[in-house]
Amino acid sequence: MARMSDRAPGAAGSGLNDDIGEEKRLALYRSQVVLREAEQRAFDLFLQNLVKGTSHLSLGQEAVAAGFAEAMQKGDLSFCTYRGHAHTLARGVPVEKVLGELMQRDNGLMRGKGGSMHLTSEEHGVMGSYAIIGAHLPIACGAAWRAQYKGHKDVSVCFFGDGTTNIGAFHEALNFAAVWKLPVVFVCENNLYMEYTPIADVTAVQHPAADRASAYGLERIVIDGNDADVVYREAQKAYAKARAGNGPSLIECMTYRHSGHSRADPAKYRPEGELERWKLRDPIKIYRERLLQFGVSEKTIADIDARVRKEVDDATEACKAAPMPPLDILTTDVYADGGWAWRN
């Protein structure tokens, strides 16, 4: 198994490190539970044939999305991949909007015109989910260039998987961002599998993102992506560096997806016991124990769980009751005039 250093909060005997504070810790926990419950629900709805098309779940990877999103400020921008439900929800997009899009209803985030792989909510800073591997790294550079040029203080945060590190756009974007010292943070979620193939089988270095960092003059950063506190702290550092004008960061988060690559994948290629070992380090389990260590009551945790479950239940019912999109949106928004006319 890849790097699994279990960083307990604070070193043994040194007392708990409470740099994050209870309010933020509860937000980090709640966010992870929302992602878990919403995506588990998406999977259940798929089994009921209510979620159509494909979907790529982040079950097991919630700490990365929650940690980076909770460290963001309003106005910071997220660029996601087709595995983007978690990153979208983590910015505060309502569960109903996301499930509605997955169920291809009129109440969906894009009224069914985008689908699971293209979740976008600019009002929440979610600048799109990109289904062509690597495409959004240069796009995030461009958004960061705008911030640099206009003197804005927002950071562009670009999430991608380990498989993305072997496509050209990754390397073009890293070099570009480093040379222009852009306020962009590249976040690699290394879940050990590019799709069905272990990333180690197809990559020349052990850490597919971090071991390439030196080629672009960047620091080599590998963190435990299943510990939301570790993620949150690293995100804060990287955002502060970007806002200060000190350029990009590349952060490789070690994590694991509990489900297959997509809904079509039962993940039979995994070695026996691997999933079970990672489930011992389930990010939500880790964080629940963390909260208890900090003296948060079982009841407070159970209340959060119950409220989130109700939110997801209510969203599910709203989506089931929502109409399908009307046919007249078929030809809207091809061009900026709202229509699709290509001739007079």
Partner: peptide, 15 residues
């Protein structure tokens, strides 16, 4: 790819 991607990101956000 970086040229066109950067142009797009800049265009999406106001340039």
């Amino acid at each position: 790819q970086a040229i066109l991607g950067a142009a797009m990101g800049a265009a999406m956000t106001g340039l």
